[in-house]
């Protein structure tokens, strides 16, 4: 990325994709908070109870469990996809490697050991466990974020579940008790199923459909049978 003949672009252009999605994340999170508090207030009104303020709602477990249950499923999706695409292929899909290239590939393919270059990241030159961890860092971070966000959805779901039970004059449940509740598993599965379908359909649709100019697609003129070409 530091080649002397590369044109230099400004910060905004260099990071346009990440910044755009970061901005869209904040806007849609705001939308979730606004529509969420409106929904809560409609229920409060129907039950003859007082209104809840936006700040109170944004600092409640009921809001955070809805955020975390969606985050966890996204990180589960990426964690599974990053690891599955090492070992499994889909013939003809730009999302996949060529059949026959399953596995972690050679040091030469991966520019490791004596195939490393001066520009290779630090951990590549370090060797040993540091290189081994760095070689799996994308999947490991996605997996760790899945576990953390899933745990966060469990504890916020537990707090929200208990505050609802208290409102109905029922005894609160323990955290372990909540992990056996249908509420927790329904929140998890309803998000997981959509992620699995989305990943599966992107993988197979990328065989037969094209998006000119997108690295998520093969070049428009490439044959359906060609795998792993992006354009």
């Amino acid at each position: 990325m530091s080649g002397v003949d590369e044109p230099t672009y400004g910060f905004l252009r260099n990071n346009a994709l990440s910044l755009t999605f970061g901005g869209l994340f904040l806007i849609t999170l705001g939308g979730q908070a606004l529509s969420g508090v409106a929904q809560v207030n409609a229920e409060q009104e129907a039950n003859g109870l007082g209104r809840v303020g936006l700040l109170d709602y944004a600092t409640s477990s009921s809001f955070l469990v809805d955020v975390m249950e969606n985050w966890q499923s996204e990180y589960l999706q990426f964690f599974l996809y990053v690891f599955a695409t090492v070992w499994l292929v889909q013939k003809g899909s730009s999302e996949s490697k060529e059949p026959g290239k399953e596995g972690t590939e050679s040091d030469r393919d991966q520019q490791l050991g004596r195939h490393a270059s001066a520009g290779s990241p630090g951990p590549v030159h370090a060797g040993g466990w540091l290189t081994a961890v760095f070689s799996r860092s994308l999947g490991l971070v996605m997996g760790a974020l899945f576990l953390l966000t899933w745990a966060a959805s469990a504890v916020t779901g537990w707090a929200a579940f208990n505050s609802e039970r208290l409102g109905q004059r029922q005894d609160p449940v323990t955290l372990v008790g909540y992990l056996g509740e249908a509420d927790f598993w329904n929140r998890s599965f309803q998000n997981w199923q959509s992620e699995m379908l989305a990943v599966g359909s992107l993988t197979i649709f990328a065989v037969y459909l094209r998006q000119r100019g997108s690295p998520e697609s093969k070049p428009v003129g490439v044959a359906h049978a060609d795998t792993g070409q992006t354009g």
């Binding site: 990325m1 530091s2 990440s18 600092t59 409640s60 955070l64 985050w71 966060a152 916020t156």
Partner: peptide, 30 residues
Amino acid sequence: MKGVRAVYLVYLAVILLGIGYAFVLAAMGR
């Protein structure tokens, strides 16, 4: 690559802060 690294670190920080915030709210029983 300094700007790119900054965006990467901001993403990581936002995600970890969100997770931390969720744990704090749950611990407070809110």
